[in-house]
Structure formats: structure tokens, C-alpha cells
């Protein structure tokens, strides 16, 4: 047992998870597997395997689902995976920024928090214009006033570390006058 090559075992296991996710029609099972995969993405040793199984795509697909659990788990997985450079580049290549930005409008705090962290991770010299456009900066300005201290911390950090100062200043002034974009404002419950 101890000598078994756990690497290939792990890959097989992850592959089984992905297969089950694709085959099952049961939402509950899907949620469980998705959470499983997202948690596996927390361990950097699994990144290679998860990328090979195109789990980044799977997570990105979840962001447009109606089921809020799917969205929360999907963005959680992306938050975990985007910490690593190669996965980050994959997400950027698949046009993930816009999908992640949409998560800022979620009603769930956990989803928004994961989205902020993911956006931080996705910010590179090339993608900066996308991840710190006016709408995002405004959204962060609003979130930095949130009552939730975790939200406030992350948004403040985003403004301080990722956004150009003048832009933040402008966004703050604008937000006092009027709300220009609706990004980050949760939709009302139906």
C-alpha cells in the first residue's frame, strides 16, 4: 500500500469525479462532486491533474448556472485554482474574467468573496485593463463600505493593491454623485 503510486490513483479518482459529475442527473450528487473537486483544487499538488481534466472549464461553466450552490462552488474552485499561474492563464484564455465579474453581483457573500479573490489572482499586466475597469472599481468602492468585514477587507485590498489610484479616486467621487454601474449590486429576490 505504502509503495503504491498515489499520483496515478489520485488522477483516476479525480477522473471518476468528473465523470460522475457529467453523467449524473441528480443535482445533489452534482453539488457534492463539484464541492469535492473545488476542495481538491485547494491542494496545489492536484493542480496538474485538474487542469488535465479541464476542471477549470467545468468550474467556469458553473458560473452561469441558476443553482446558487453551483455558482458558489464553481467560483470557490476557481478561487482555489487561480492561485496557480498556469491555471490562472487557462482561466484567462477561456475568457473567465467576465464570468467571474458577474459573480460580484451574487446575493451570497461567499460567492462575492471568492470572486474578489479570483479577480485578484487573475490580474496580470495583460488582463489588468479588464479586471480593473471602471465597473469593477466602482463595485469595489461600494464593497469596501460593506458591513461584512471580510468583504470590506478584500475590497479595500483590491483597491489599494490592484487599481490605479486616480481611478479609485474618480470612482469614489462618482459613487458619491450617482451610481453608474450596477455591478456588485445583488438582484432583488424574486
Amino acid at each position: 500500500m505504502a509503495c503504491k503510486d498515489s499520483g496515478s490513483d489520485r488522477f483516476e479518482y479525480l477522473q471518476n469525479l468528473v465523470t460522475e459529475f457529467q453523467d449524473t442527473d441528480c443535482d445533489e450528487a452534482k453539488e457534492q462532486v463539484l464541492a469535492n473537486l473545488a476542495n481538491f483544487a485547494y491542494d496545489p499538488r492536484n493542480m496538474g491533474d485538474l487542469r488535465r481534466l479541464q476542471v477549470t472549464e467545468l468550474f467556469l461553466d458553473m458560473l452561469t448556472e441558476e443553482n446558487e450552490n453551483f455558482v458558489e462552488f464553481g467560483i470557490g474552485g476557481l478561487c482555489n485554482m487561480s492561485m496557480e499561474r498556469e491555471s490562472r492563464d487557462e482561466i484567462l484564455c477561456s475568457g473567465g474574467v467576465d464570468l467571474v465579474k458577474n459573480c460580484l453581483s451574487s446575493r451570497r457573500d461567499e460567492t462575492v468573496l471568492s470572486a474578489i479573490t479570483t479577480l485578484m489572482n487573475l490580474t496580470t499586466a495583460n488582463s489588468r485593463s479588464q479586471t480593473t475597469d471602471a465597473a469593477v472599481v466602482q463595485c469595489m468602492v461600494r464593497l469596501s463600505l460593506s458591513e461584512n468585514s471580510r468583504m470590506r477587507n478584500l475590497a479595500t485590498m483590491y483597491l489599494e493593491d490592484y487599481c490605479p489610484e486616480e481611478q479609485v479616486k474618480r470612482a469614489r467621487e462618482e459613487s458619491q454623485v450617482q451610481c453608474q454601474t450596477a455591478l456588485g449590486i445583488p438582484l432583488p429576490k424574486d
Binding site: 460522475e20 462532486v33 476542495n39 468573496l113 471568492s114 479573490t117
Partner: peptide
């Protein structure tokens, strides 16, 4: 969560939840 199939049911009882650094 008690409805996991055996192959992905861990040793400790756990809820369905995703952990991130946040």
C-alpha cells in the same frame, strides 16, 4: 451530508462545503 456514494465518502462525516483561502 449522508447521501454520498461510498467511493467519495470520507472517514469523517462532513457537510457539503467548499473551502477557499477566504
Amino acid at each position: 451530508c449522508h447521501t454520498r456514494p461510498k467511493y467519495r465518502d470520507g472517514r469523517r462525516p462532513k457537510a457539503v462545503k467548499v473551502y477557499t483561502i477566504n
